[in-house]
Design a protein around this nucleic acid. Sequence first.
DNA 1: TACCGTAGTTGTATCGTTATAAATTTGCAT
DNA 2: ATGCAAATTTATAACGATACAACTACGGTA
Lengths: 362, 362
Amino acid sequence: MPLEDLEERRPARRTKGAGRGSDAAKPTLRTIAELTGLAVTTVSRALADAPQIALETRQRVAQVAAEIGYLPDRAAQRLRTGRTNVISLILDPHEEILGYATSMIKGVTAALRGTPYHLVISPHFSDSPQIEPVEHIIRNRLADGIIFTRTEPMDQRVKLLMQNDFPFICHGRTELATPHPFVDYDNYDFAYRAAKKLIASGCAKLTIVLPPETFTFAHHMRHGFMTAVREEGVGFEIATGITLDSKSDDIRRYFDKRLSQPSPPDGFVCGGEVVAMAIMAACYDHGLLPGREVDFVAKQTSGLFDQIRPRVETIYEDLTEAGLLMGQLLLRRIAGPVAVGELQHLQRLAEELPPSPPSSRP
Amino acid sequence: MPLEDLEERRPARRTKGAGRGSDAAKPTLRTIAELTGLAVTTVSRALADAPQIALETRQRVAQVAAEIGYLPDRAAQRLRTGRTNVISLILDPHEEILGYATSMIKGVTAALRGTPYHLVISPHFSDSPQIEPVEHIIRNRLADGIIFTRTEPMDQRVKLLMQNDFPFICHGRTELATPHPFVDYDNYDFAYRAAKKLIASGCAKLTIVLPPETFTFAHHMRHGFMTAVREEGVGFEIATGITLDSKSDDIRRYFDKRLSQPSPPDGFVCGGEVVAMAIMAACYDHGLLPGREVDFVAKQTSGLFDQIRPRVETIYEDLTEAGLLMGQLLLRRIAGPVAVGELQHLQRLAEELPPSPPSSRP
DNA sequence: TACCGTAGTTGTATCGTTATAAATTTGCAT
DNA sequence: ATGCAAATTTATAACGATACAACTACGGTA
C-alpha cells in the first residue's frame, strides 16, 4: 500500500491564473496526476488507452478525468504532435449558390460529430488565386485535412495536395491521370435524364445553362445533354454568355431576350434552383406556362423547390449527403493510408426516380 | 563588432523532421534568430512591434522573416498566450433556413479578412441543450469570441457569457435588464410596414406566420403586426401550430386547409422566403393570384426572390451586412473593453423603401 | 544466489512562442 | 575617468501535452 498518501494533495503553486470567470483553475493532466498520485506521463497514456497501462489505473484515471471534467488542451496537443484536429472547408464566400454551402456544412458537421475534429471555414476570395488557401494550409500545417469544391479538370489544388501527400477530398472530379479522392454527383446522368424527360414530354427544342467551363462538371453536364439530344435527334441550343453562376437577373434577361427571338426553346434543363426560377420568370413574363407551352426539369438541392408553382419536375442532388460522405472519407484517410479507390464516391440517381419530393423520403 | 560571427549558421540538429513534402523545414523564430544573430526573444519582440526594439533591428528582422516566409506557429502562440485566434460561430445545422447561414458566414468571413482570426463553425445540435457549446467554448478556451443567433428573451447564453466577461455578440436581442452586445434587424418595423402595405393594397384580413415563440424577434414581429392592424382596425389572424421554422410542406398544408374554410385571409405577411413560397403555393392551388385575390409582403434575404412570379412585394434584410457587423464589433470587443453601447446595432429600413430589388443597389 | 524478461510506471526533453526579470550596452553629465 | 539612467538585448522559465528512454517490481529460470 502506498505510504506517501499524505495530504500533499493541494496544488503546489496556485498564485498564477486565479481564474477570472470561474473559480476553479482549468484542469490539466497535472491536476489528474496530483489527484491520483500518478505521474503526468502515466495519466496521458492512460487517457490515450495505451496498451501498457494497467486496466485498474486506466479506469481510475478515466473516472477522475470525468469527475473534474478534464479536456485536453488542444493547443498543447497540437504543438506537441503536429496534429491540428482541424478540417478545413475551403469556400468562396461569393458563391451565391443558394444553400450549396449550408447543405454541405451540415453534412460535414454531422460527419465530424463525436470526433475531436473542428470544422474551420477557410475563405477563398475570388480576387486571389485559387491555390492560395491550399498552399497556406499545407505550408503552415493549419489543418489535418482539406475539403474543397468546384473541381477543375487539371485542378492545381489536387496536384499540390497529392504531391504533398496531404489528406483531402474534393467535390467533383478532375481529368488527371492519377486517381484521387473525391465525391461527385453524376451530372452526366442528370443532364441526360433531364433532356430525355423533356423530349418525352414533347419538347421540340431543348436548352441548357451550363456551369462555368472551368469546372469539370460543366463538361459532364454538356456531355449528358448532348448525348440525349443526339440520340433523339431533337433541336437544341446551349445558352452562351451566362452560366449557372451568373446573377439570376442576368439569366432572366438573357431568356427574356431569347424568347422574343425566332424559334425559341421550349424545354429547359436547369442545373439549379436559381437558374430554374430565373428562366421560369422569363417564361412567365412571356405568357409561357410550364406544363403547357414550355417544360422544365430542374436540379433540386433544397426542400424549397417543392413549393414552386406551377410544379416542375425535379431531380434531387443531396448535398448534405455529399458533405457527410466527404467528412467520413476524409477522416478515414487521415486515420491512415487507404486505397484511393475507397475514397471515391459517385452519387447516382435511383434507376427510376419516384415523382414524390425528396422531403417525403424515409 | 561581433567577433563570434562565424560560420556557425548551419542548424544545430537537423536529423528530426526531415520534411516529408517540402524540402525546407518550417521556419521558426529560431531560424530567424540564427540568420540575424539575434536572440529568439529579440526576434519575437521585434515582430510584435514591441517598443523597446531598435528600429534598425526591427526592420532587419522583418525583412528576414519576409524572405524566408516565416509565419508564427498558431499552436505555440495559443499555448503560450491563451489566445486562440478563433471566432466561433454557433449554428444549428438543422436550421433549414435557406441561405441564412451562408449569408452570415459570408459577412463574418469578410470581417475577419486580413486579421489573424479564423472562423470555426461550432455546431449546436438541436438534441442537446442550447447552452452546451457556449459552456464548452468558455470552459476550454476554444475561442476568443462567440457569435450566435436566434436570441431568446431570457437567453441563458447571454447570461453565461456576461458572467464570464467573455467576448460575444448575438444576432437578436434579449429582454434582460443588463445591456449586451447585439446586432439585430428591426422586425417590429418589418411587420408593421408589411401589414400597412397590405392594408393599403385593400386587404380585408391579414395573417402572419411567426417565428417560434422562444425567440425574441417573434415578439417584435407580433407586436409590429398587431400595432398595424389595430391602428387600421382591419381583420387579422395569427397562424397557429406552424412557425417560420416549420417545414415548407407543413406550412403549405396549413394554408391549404385554411383557405378552404370560411373567411380566409387575403393578405400575408411572410417573414422569409420559405414561408412565402409555401403560402403562394397554397394560394395557387386554390386559384388565388397575388395582386388580385390575395397580396403578399415577404422578407427577402437573398437575391433569389427577385425572380418570383407573379411578383410580390419584398422588404430586404441584409444578413451579410449583419454578419459583417457582428464580426467587426466582436473584434473591437476582443481588442479591449468597449462601452456596450458601441456594440449594439439595429438594422433599420430606409424611411421609404424603393420598389427596386436589393440587387440593384449601388 | 545471480540473472533475466516483462508489465507497469516514471523522468526528461521537447514542440514554438512569449512574459518576466536580468544583463548588457550606450549616452552623457559629472 | 566615473557614475548612472536610458536604451537595447538576452537568459530563463513557463504554457500543457506527448515521444522516448529509462527505471522499478516481480516472478521465473539457470
